[in-house]
Design a protein around this nucleic acid. Structure first.
Length: 771
DNA sequence: AACGAGGGACTTTTT
DNA sequence: GTCCCTCGTT
């Protein structure tokens, strides 16, 4: 896509400016509001821009950067501008090019992760690494942790790799070392604290040995480096004389520390954020970073942007009303001069099919009758699982749509396999990749041989990848040893070829030579067919990226593959409705937005029921969702909703409308549908919803929805179990309740049985009773 | 070592 | 309905 196409999305103004070339300082503040202008013109000292949703913060950021250049206060290479997603970064670059010309491309405008991965690569040697670094994504690091747990004979039922991975990740995001973790401040203490800490320690060692870094390291290692090596820190602080950070409310401790380390002398730091849009606490974002910015930088100037240029006043009133229920926030009220707009629609559906059918019908109506382009319509939901019914209904209705950020292309097995080869070619010590492809395609190296290679590597103090090359010494069977040697030889050949081949040619070469292609062709199944297609698509898209000049080397390709983000799916601009989670929606805007599944237990999600802070985060998520809409907003909830796939076995639950609906003043909304009026609600262990006597709204959906009988439950969810008491399971006999969680349909208990150990039981299905 | 059948847990959100 | 692991068979 050319710069102009991209910029035109934001109105012809920028394109016109691009033709005129660089702007004078005065032209750059032309048409801005007072506070926006203050933010652009501020000089000398820390600046906090509190930017409400839709208040034009990207505009202010780009103008500010252009203004710094225009006044001669900065050169392009002085600028480090941090965004939350690659998409936001690309947009910002294009807008900057429109304002200041091609020299904008010399600035560092990118995500934290990308910027500091670059810096880490430059400084790998200073950190003691032997070579270029390989980036492990969550799946890779989970695999390494899983392997460590297996080596320690930890029962994966009791301590899952996922749980350990998330504890380690949280610790790292909070800048804790394994030693500090083990000492334990009580924060992460739990029954498996000791073992988790030991695994943490080993994990760090194995990552280092593999010359690999995980997502947390991208932020952690630079912090560590800057702390240890003042010279290096100063060099970067000097290089980036102007640091600007967008979405500052979603930074974690490490990110906050990096900003501080880079700017503490020159203090030319500008952060933009909105504490009401902080939605990443679960991955260690710390809202205090923005709330405490003024105490970190006592001389900070604060600019508040409350005028909204996106939505109608009704939509803003709804957003303001909902968020005002949060206790811990800086009060701010969005307003617009754009007029009231149309009322917000609230549709009460019978079930999730009805909900999806209504959304589909509304989309068709908006598209046909109101002329709203499909690409200007988005459907949001709290959890990915909700997308399926919507997709089915959209397929049935023949509505072009795309799922944004659901199953990532690069997460597919065949893609990961091929990339693992390439990573191993570039980094022979990459243990996770080596383990992944050692028997892909099948070459007769089974679990036993892999274990032997692993312990041989540990004994000899070499990496797993090196062990492959010395398979003869590892005590494998003759057959396995020769297969392993064959693989090592292949990798060596490919390693040489990689010097000269283009990235796409190298991928194609691996595809043929590894035997992955042959194995898939031989399989002759529909599934194998689609895997082949995906691999061809990968190779073609890499060739395209080369042609477009997006990447040049295989390393650049691997980096971009590891750092793709959910919103990157939006890059094709075909007219399609977008479906995405509310988290992915952050930073986007649409003419028409639907938020579905506004039910207690879904949104707010039941996991937040016991925690006021988490509930406030859910509310911020609602605020983010509502403020995505420019003109049309529809909110839906369903009276009943099927869970866990099938109709048999798992059944459905009835749900109360979300409290967030009740928080929106009635005079802003029009209520439709069959499921009755939302009313003030609260968590309820036994939600029984009365049918309204007079239905006057439109009713979509099929009456058959009501014929489905409730699935029989075991009744155990109503036992009101408490920790410590004894229960009888039909198959496993007597057990002791360790803990309980959830309620109603989702009530669960952890029970310890004499024979089978601890089990997590979903009470509505578990055959459980009191003695 | 490979493969298929069967079973259990699972659904919060992701750079 | 799906993923992932285990187990039994060849």
């Amino acid at each position: 896509m050319s710069g102009f196409d991209q910029v035109d999305l934001f109105g012809g103004l920028h394109a016109a400016q691009a033709r005129r070339g660089p702007q004078t300082p005065d032209e750059l503040v032309d048409g801005l509001t007072g506070p926006q202008r203050d933010a652009v013109e501020h000089r000398g000292g820390p600046l906090l821009i509190v930017a409400g949703a839709g208040s034009g913060k990207t505009r202010v950021l780009t103008r500010r950067i252009a203004h710094l250049l225009a006044t001669g206060d900065a050169e392009p290479q002085d600028i480090l501008a941090i965004t939350f997603t690659n998409k936001a970064a690309n947009e910002m670059v294009e807008r900057l090019v429109a304002l200041v010309g091609e020299r904008a491309r010399r600035m560092w405008v990118m995500t934290f992760h990308k910027a500091f991965f670059r810096i880490l690569q430059y400084e790998a040697e200073a950190l003691g690494y032997k070579q270029r670094l390989t980036l492990y994504d969550d799946t890779d690091s989970r695999r390494l942790i899983q392997e460590l747990l297996r080596e320690r004979d930890v029962d994966p039922k009791k301590l899952t790799p996922k749980a350990v991975a998330s504890k380690i990740s949280l610790a790292k995001a909070n800048l804790q070392t394994p030693a500090e973790f083990l000492e334990g401040t009580g924060f992460y203490q739990g029954p498996f604290h000791q073992i988790t800490g030991e695994v943490f320690e080993q994990y760090e060692r194995r990552l280092f040995a593999a010359s690999a870094v995980d997502f947390d390291d991208l932020l952690n290692k630079p912090v560590e480096l800057f702390r240890r090596n003042e010279e290096i820190r100063e060099a970067y602080a000097h290089r980036f004389r102007h640091v600007l950070v967008d979405e500052f409310q979603d930074t974690n401790r490490a990110q906050n520390e990096l900003v501080f380390q880079l700017t503490r002398e020159h203090r030319q730091v500008c952060v933009v954020g909105d504490s009401d849009q902080s939605i990443y606490r679960f991955r260690a974002a710390d809202i205090r970073n923005i709330l405490d910015f003024e105490s970190t930088f006592p001389d900070a100037t604060v600019v508040v942007l409350e005028q909204n240029f996106r939505s109608t006043q009704r939509i803003l009133d709804a957003a303001n009303a909902v968020i005002s229920n949060n206790a811990s926030r800086v009060v701010k009220n969005l307003f617009t001069e754009e007029g009231d707009g149309v009322p917000i629609t609230v549709y009460g559906a019978m079930d999730e099919r009805d909900e999806a059918a209504w959304v589909a019908a509304e989309v068709v109506r908006l598209n046909h009758n109101e002329g709203i382009d499909l690409s200007e319509i988005a459907i949001f939901y709290r959890t990915n699982a909700q997308s399926r019914v919507l997709e089915e209904e959209f397929n049935r209705a023949g509505i072009a749509h795309r799922l944004v950020g659901a199953t990532r292309f690069y997460d597919r097995r065949e893609i990961r396999d091929l990339l693992a080869y390439v990573r191993l070619i570039r980094n022979r010590d990459d243990e996770v990749s080596a383990r992944r492809i050692i028997n892909v395609p099948k070459r007769g190296i089974g679990q036993t041989s892999v274990t032997k290679l692993g312990s041989f590597a540990a004994r000899s103090g070499i990496s797993f990848g090196e062990a492959l090359e010395r398979a003869a010494e590892a005590g494998l069977t003759a057959k396995a040893a020769s297969a392993t040697t064959g693989l090592a030889g292949l990798l060596e050949t490919l390693r040489t070829e990689a010097q000269t081949l283009t990235p796409s040619a190298l991928l194609a070469e691996v595809f043929h030579r590894s035997g992955i292609e042959a194995e898939l062709i031989a399989e002759q199944s529909i599934e194998a067919e689609s895997r082949l297609e995906n691999l061809h698509e990968l190779i073609n898209s890499v060739a395209q990226m080369e042609a477009d000049g997006v990447i040049e080397t295989i390393d650049e390709f691997l980096e971009s593959a590891a750092l793709v983000s959910a919103q990157d799916d939006l890059n094709d601009d075909a007219p399609k409705v977008s479906l995405m989670t509310l988290h992915v929606a952050k930073g986007l805007e649409y003419q028409a937005a639907f938020i579905t599944g506004l039910e207690e237990g879904i949104f707010p999600h039941f996991s937040s029921r016991d925690d006021e802070e988490q509930l406030e985060e859910e509310r911020r998520l609602a605020y983010v969702g509502i403020t995505r809409a420019r003109r049309i907003l529809a909110l839906t909830h369903a009276e009943r909703r099927f869970r866990f796939g099938g109709e048999q076995g798992s059944g459905f639950s009835t749900s109360l409308p979300s409290r967030f609906l009740a928080e929106i003043p009635e005079n802003l909304t029009v209520r439709l549908g069959s499921a009755g009026m939302p009313r003030p609600s609260r968590w309820n262990d036994d939600p029984v919803f009365e049918r309204p006597s007079d239905d006057d709204g439109r009713v979509f959906g099929r009456p058959s929805a009501f014929k489905r009988p409730p699935a029989p439950t075991s009744g155990a969810e109503r036992l009101n179990l408490t920790a410590g008491e004894t229960v009888i399971h039909e198959r496993w006999g007597a057990g002791v309740v360790v803990s309980t969680s959830g309620s109603g349909e989702m009530a669960a208990a952890k029970v310890r049985f004499a024979d089978v150990g601890e089990k997590n039981l979903l009470l509505s299905v578990a055959p459980l009773r009191r003695p």
